[in-house]
Design a protein around this nucleic acid. Sequence first.
DNA 1: ACCAATTAATTGGTCTACCAAATAAAAGTC
DNA 2: GACTTTTATTTGGTAGACCAATTAATTGGT
Lengths: 247, 247
Amino acid sequence: MKSLIDTITAIQLESPVDKIIGQLKQLIISGQLKPGDRLPAERVLSERFGLGRSYIREAILKLEFYGLLKTNPQSGTYVAGLSINVIDNIISDIIKFNKDDFNALIEARYHLELNAVKLAAERRTEEDLASIRSAMHDYEHKISHGKDAVEEDMLFHIKIAKATKNSVIESMILILVPDLIKNIVENKVCGDNRAKTAIKEHRQILAAIETQDVLKAEEAMASHLDEIWQISKAGFAAQQIINETEN
Amino acid sequence: MKSLIDTITAIQLESPVDKIIGQLKQLIISGQLKPGDRLPAERVLSERFGLGRSYIREAILKLEFYGLLKTNPQSGTYVAGLSINVIDNIISDIIKFNKDDFNALIEARYHLELNAVKLAAERRTEEDLASIRSAMHDYEHKISHGKDAVEEDMLFHIKIAKATKNSVIESMILILVPDLIKNIVENKVCGDNRAKTAIKEHRQILAAIETQDVLKAEEAMASHLDEIWQISKAGFAAQQIINETEN
DNA sequence: ACCAATTAATTGGTCTACCAAATAAAAGTC
DNA sequence: GACTTTTATTTGGTAGACCAATTAATTGGT
């Protein structure tokens, strides 16, 4: 039962890094900084924004990850050669990007995994099959002992992602995993009955991957995730109600 | 014509940050650091790894983005409550993650955008339609003047991504955009003939989104991306040959 | 006036010192 | 002895100092 103090601490001012990113965005939009230009030196930015150089570097690092900046050691940091419009769009998205949107998370996972399982069915090697099987057995073993096995479940999916032989898709799924686990645990998707049916579904998915039946793999994964999705939704709705009644 | 010096400079040693991440991974695998534990203080890690605290912080930041660590100010940094196996898998992926894998990039884009356009067709608002139309017109305008319009093309796709109302999928597409543009420019996907057909394809996609015809939207996007994919592949193969003959 | 070689200034990379908040330890109180 | 209050220590947050590489400016020669 926590209410007032939480809502207060939740109102934290914009992080210094996002502030800097926003400022840089303004510099670009206003035309003071054109695509391809060199950024002012980190020290200059530090002074101009009234923040330590550490923050400037952190912001640059973040924008570099998104491909908007490129820094050459001992030379300077340069704005990507993208149109202002594209840069603007991406920066706006970076600032507001968070993985807390429950529905978006589950939905993205759903689509990504459907894509992944199709590719996996197509390309899996014998080693992939072995590691997927192993992960499946770990899951079943944990379940048969009446324990939670959320992570083993995810590991099964991770091994499938690896079998896609597509590092980008794999990485995207990996990025979502911790938040998915958090979500699943919080919404108690893993009931005892659920676990039993999940085992069956896993086996169907594996079977389809083994026979390289792309269509069947997709179907099996879809129904597997559909169930999880429904349960998550219900759990999330319940959680929402609890939160509301707390205020 | 560059050969020897490049292959030498290309052999850059593992970055300090990845080195630290690898070390942390070892600590976790070896059981010295269990899920839920608090990390040694940054200063301690700094001394133990023989690297400055800046690097430690950078590594922690990266792992935090992937959801593996959680740092509480003035208290400590904690390992996520995930099984060692999951953590191991994700860290391994982080270290080797790069968006330079050409085929993986295009393929991931293909699947993501197919998912996106279906959701967009389903959920687009009038505002979405307006911004998509606007982006399309910008593209056509630029093309009609005989100019390159790679970025305007991407903007068209970005607006569709925004219409999905799914921030996770949107962000994932956004992350790929700069690399996609780089790839497209390098492989000269944008020939003059190509541009003309691309305009038609864009219009078909937009039409399907307008009428909320999910299936048609998917088909239109698929054939649009298929063409780009094929051209990219050819361009990439050509580039490979050039690189090889340079040695 | 032009160009090469040398020097000076600037850059990001790296590390260390200081800060306020959070925690643990110690002292005081009943 | 149990509990509260105070103090000391440890933490991540922040800022600034130093370094080597790069780039710009200067110089000297022709």
